[in-house]
Design a protein around this nucleic acid. Structure first.
Length: 554
RNA sequence: GGGCUUGUGGCCUAGCCUGGAUAUGGCGUUAGCCUCCUAAGCUAAAAGUCGGGGGUUCGAAUCCCCCCAAGCCCGCCA
């Protein structure tokens, strides 16, 4: 509905002003849309912008009368306000199941996220990647793309060699009920301490690296066992966060299948290839000073080589490739993009996000200095349970637990997704445990309130009208949901959705406060119930797209 | 040393790409609202050199240049 109204206004201004760029944007508190085209015309015509705005407005009024859009000026600004037809169209549209879904695009998108090294549990830094990636995946589905969500498993890296050495040499027992990822981290931390104490162990690690590259069966099994053990624990964490992947791709498969060798062969014959002891690429034409090394002088491959093979495979199988990576991967990520271009393949679009640190400094799996996602989930769930327990003595233990889990996972996801990805953050327990205002529970609560009203209302006849300022503001906000989905699928900035969710909940709560629904009578009751139903449907679709449970009661 | 990113009231944060109407919200503080559809809610108040300086423009938080501060990267690690 919004798209249509926008286009109508845009076309009208183009026709009346003769300008290509109609400078049309959000009207804020003044209007639904506003144009500053009078300023640019003023320059060209050497006239007063206020006068131009007034002149144009008279013509625009005629153009837009049919569409029920009113036009007015405030100084040089031209304001557009949508009328009753718009409201009624929005209400009809937003009551439909799956509201916000855009038309099918027939484009295959591959989204890679998380892809943390399987040498320990996911921590609060990793899950920023998971939440951004999973939210994007949900947005892309909503935007009509077919999506595949992948985890790239670094199963032949140095870290895993260290873990396998630890398992063979350190006799560390798995504690009763200990998760696999936590156990692997213990072995990894201990092995690193051993290496610090006795650097000669490094030779043994190098030997394992060489064996894994050759595909030595015994070493392959050792690596794979450790990786699977860790990965199972990580999958469990991702499940609790509603951030599942549908495929796990192992980097060693690209060595085994010789895809990596094919890519390296292709690259070794391009003009940018440098054959010294190593195989490297000269990417100075892209502004990179350092060579991009792909093969060591001992003949073994580095991570970049395997990653290139993976991306070439993605290029062959998808129309769009999106990678979510931490800011520490900026250099290697952009080098990879440049190399894909040299190969004539599709380069990935990369969403970089800045770091999450602890108040005492940055996190480190190797040093055992991190807050695990599991611990965070546990603490937040505990806190959520206390809240439900005091508020809802009337419901069963089972329901309390289920609500607490939904609230906790939602609170964590919202807390992460609400800040834009280019901002580095410091993890803060107080904020993580705060369930008011700018939080998932705030939005979930608005949805639950709406559900409660609809449960009590009984049958009613849908009426597609809004009278009060609060009703109108709410309906107009509902109308923007498809636009938000479209925007995020273009800009890859998912925090916009969190802000939208908050604003939608704000407007629903204000409406709820000033416009009684169940106590209203006749047509007014029906039209308000219709608005509640539309708001509830939209809130629940927004929450679903954020990967947050839209609980019906809390 | 070079590159990238960030800097908005005591704290957190939107807006920056695509310049325009009194800079968005929250936390905290202060003062109110439950005989009323779930108070995880609502209302109001106090609180701002948009890091600093220059420039472009009728107009700059937004664009350009310089400087300062913080984080990340600059490995034949991943």
């Amino acid at each position: 509905m919004f798209f249509k109204a926008y286009k109508t206004v845009e076309d009208a201004i183009k026709k009346v002003s003769g300008e290509d760029d109609v400078l049309l944007g959000d009207g804020g508190e003044h209007a639904d849309l506003a144009s500053t085209v009078a300023f640019s015309l003023a320059k060209k015509r050497k006239e007063n912008p206020v006068k131009i705005a007034a002149d144009i407005t008279a013509e625009l009024e005629k153009e837009l009368f049919e569409a029920d859009i009113s036009v007015s000026t405030k100084g040089p600004y031209i304001n557009f306000i949508f009328g009753k037809n718009y409201i009624s169209d929005v209400l009809r549209e937003s009551l439909k199941p799956g509201f916000g879904q855009l038309s099918e695009k027939n484009i295959r998108v591959c989204i890679e996220h998380t892809s943390a090294n399987p040498n320990g549990p996911l921590h609060v830094g990793h899950i920023r990647n998971s939440v951004i990636g999973d939210t994007l995946a949900r947005v892309y589905k909503k935007a009509g793309y077919s999506t595949d969500v992948q985890y790239y498993v670094n199963d032949m890296g140095r870290q895993i060699a260290i873990v396998s050495w630890g398992f063979d040499n350190l006799d560390i027992k798995r504690k009763e009920g200990e998760k696999g990822d936590r156990y692997v981290a213990n072995v990894y931390v201990a092995a690193n301490r051993s290496i610090e104490a006795d650097p000669s162990i490094k030779e043994e690690i190098d030997r394992r690296m060489a064996l894994i590259e050759q595909g030595d069966p015994e070493m392959v099994k050792k690596f794979r066992d450790a990786v699977i053990l860790c990965l199972d624990g990580m999958k469990d964490t991702l499940k609790k966060l509603n951030a599942p992947h549908n495929r796990f791709i192992f980097e060693s498969d690209f060595v085994k299948s010789r895809l990596m060798h094919h890519v390296l062969n292709r690259l070794s014959s391009i003009p940018q290839a440098k054959h010294d002891e190593t195989l490297a690429l000269d990417l100075t034409e892209f502004g990179f000073e350092k060579d991009y090394v792909l093969r060591r002088s001992d003949g073994t491959s580095v991570y970049a080589a395997r990653d290139l093979a993976y991306h070439e495979w993605k290029s062959d199988n998808y129309d769009r490739i999106i990678d979510v990576l931490g800011a520490d991967h900026k250099l290697i990520g952009t080098q990879l993009q440049a190399t894909m271009k040299l190969l004539g393949d599709k380069a990935p679009e990369i969403v970089f996000f800045e770091f999450v640190s602890l108040p005492e400094g940055s996190m480190s799996t190797r040093a055992g200095k991190f807050i695990s996602a599991d611990d965070l989930i546990e603490e937040v769930t505990k806190r959520a349970y206390e809240e439900v327990d005091t508020r809802r003595p009337d419901i069963s233990e089972e329901d309390k637990k289920a609500i607490a889990e939904s609230v906790a996972a939602g609170a964590i996801r919202y807390d992460i997704i609400r800040v834009s990805q280019e901002k580095s953050t410091v993890f803060n327990w107080k904020e993580a445990l705060d369930f008011e205002k700018q939080s998932a529970p705030y939005v979930q609560y608005a949805n639950a309130r709406a559900c409660s009203i609809l449960e009590k209302s009984g049958e009613f006849e849908e009426r597609f009208e809004a009278e009060s300022e609060h009703e109108i503001a709410l309906v107009k906000k509902i109308a923007l949901f498809p636009k938000i989905i479209d925007e995020i699928s273009r800009d890859l900035r998912p925090h916009i959705l969190a802000i939208y969710a908050r604003e939608l909940a704000d407007l629903f709560n204000t409406f709820y406060r000033y416009n009684p629904v169940l106590k209203a009578e006749g047509d007014l009751r029906d039209s308000r119930l219709t608005i509640v139903k539309a708001a509830q449907n939209t809130l629940s679709e927004v929450l679903k797209t954020l990967g947050i449970d839209a609980v019906r009661s809390m």
